[in-house]
Design a protein around this nucleic acid. Sequence first.
DNA 1: TTGTAGGCGTTATCAC
DNA 2: GTGATAACGCCTACAA
Lengths: 350, 350
Amino acid sequence: MVTIVDVARAANVSRSTVSRALSGYGRIGDATREKVLAVAEELGYRPNDLARATREGRSRTIGLIVTDIANPFFAEATKAVANTAAELGYELLVADTNEDAEIERRATRVFAEKRIDGLIVVPAPGGSHDHLFESVGRPAPAVVLLDRRLLQYGVTSVTSDDSRAAAEAVALLASKGHTRIGMIDGNWTGSGFTKTRPRTRGSTTADRSDGFSMGMKRAGLPVRSGWMLYSSARELYAAQTAFAWMLRQAEHPTAIVTNNSDVALAVLTVCREFDLAIGADISMVTFDDANWAKAFNPPISVVSRPVAKMGEAAARELVAQIDVHPPSRPIVLPNVLIDRESVTAPRNLA
Amino acid sequence: MVTIVDVARAANVSRSTVSRALSGYGRIGDATREKVLAVAEELGYRPNDLARATREGRSRTIGLIVTDIANPFFAEATKAVANTAAELGYELLVADTNEDAEIERRATRVFAEKRIDGLIVVPAPGGSHDHLFESVGRPAPAVVLLDRRLLQYGVTSVTSDDSRAAAEAVALLASKGHTRIGMIDGNWTGSGFTKTRPRTRGSTTADRSDGFSMGMKRAGLPVRSGWMLYSSARELYAAQTAFAWMLRQAEHPTAIVTNNSDVALAVLTVCREFDLAIGADISMVTFDDANWAKAFNPPISVVSRPVAKMGEAAARELVAQIDVHPPSRPIVLPNVLIDRESVTAPRNLA
DNA sequence: TTGTAGGCGTTATCAC
DNA sequence: GTGATAACGCCTACAA
């Protein structure tokens, strides 16, 4: 690689003159500058940002740690973060933890060693997250949480108002006459599925379940045991098993809310197996406006989460903090309920 | 941030001793080492990898430039690259070009300044790619192409055998009795759609179209003008418009092949609007086993591309090249045709 | 206007 | 076994 010294030699000037020509600071003669620039161009000189960063104490690089980049939600968030960071003059280091807290710790450490200026993180569920915030070993000067909250630490978080949206989804279903409404939460850290509410903290998943319950209460509807299931996030078929189990109960729901698009796909699959027509036989609303939702027959009604905006907001907030603005209060972006055709009046009322 | 000097001071030894204790090179007394380690731990010392990289001339960081991370195919590839890189001891810098060659150039330059050890790139369509390979200004010592080929430059590429797979898809359709088979290619760089084959080079997209034609020829079937459409990759509804147009032709295809999952979604949407049942009224096979394909009614037959393996292979090949192994020959991984239920005999024969 | 010199945090060579 | 010292490439205060 060609360095500043090489350029200096070739242009018959000193290192500092080259630096001045390149960075445009201090005074320099026009002729000298142009010559230096020409030589640099010709030699294909590229400033060494590592050296610069070492000296300046800032790397102009931020880190993003996600539980699963392949998940459409996080893929789109990543895109927004990457684009916003680039626009703001930062590069993006990415790590995928596969929801494993141990991998998260490792990524955190390595990122810290690379001296990232800030970190956006979707913490892996379960386990302690002290490593992200303890003063000794804090991975970066600035940290922002994406789609998660960790109240104990007082970090800025970017989420969407999932509680309200879940309640709204229930209200929509109730307004069509549904009284037996179920929900499947696909973010359980256990295996298989369970009827008992897991005590999760900080997850927006919990918001959705809570919002569901609240919506049911407001509509004056009971939540029967077995109408609200928590299925494993790791096991591919857990959500299918859960929903199939739900359908086999004596009085099963006539409408279902799912907390992400993967669970929605599971529900759709099971409906096909049970020969149940979406809309006509069973109504549904899912979180996340996946790209396939509009293509289905019938098109699926969804809670569209502001993914791209969340990613962008996280990046902007992070950079603001790097520029030593004080941390913002929690940022909560609005969801929008899009009613397509998967919600109709229940059969027995028709 | 606490440096090696801080640790040295606190432990009452010299910088070199601290370095020895930490990196485990040279000779050092057991007692000294343990003390240093203890002090380092207590102070929360983290080696500064930027400084280390500056000195060693290698950053242990690789770059990934993609046209669209939010695209499920690239999202999964990114995941595989990230995981493999981590396993091999590299961190991953990511950039999204939105298929814009200018952004690609910018990312390339910045990555070079950050002194990445290697680069995996999905080049944006159109425009020159000299900037990736010209000796002066080459962004990294090692470069690997993902899902694209650029024959002129003699770079290693990782692709899947899409030509063969497309021919196989046609064969499957033909074996069920279809004679009027169409294809929609959703990677055209133009706007709207066109009937005339664009001259693209290096794209695996072209492989798919070519394979389709080859498959038709082998089956002794004609490709009527208007049965093979190229629709814009940028415009959201281009593929829908194209397929709707195709359906309105006098003798339209009874089966369709689509070259990616987004186009498949477009076809599905149009079929719903035309009230055509997949399978019964029109058969289809699409490239990419998207997560929704199994959930559809009926489940969609697909060419499953080995995405994760491609990402992993690209990362491994890149690291091998960084370790000065000579570039490998083009790597071509096998696709697998998964016949689900979207392919049946055409109506008029039933 | 231009050059000299020192330091950012590492690692490694060479004396002691 | 340990410490002083130089070097990686850059930037910039200061001197000329």
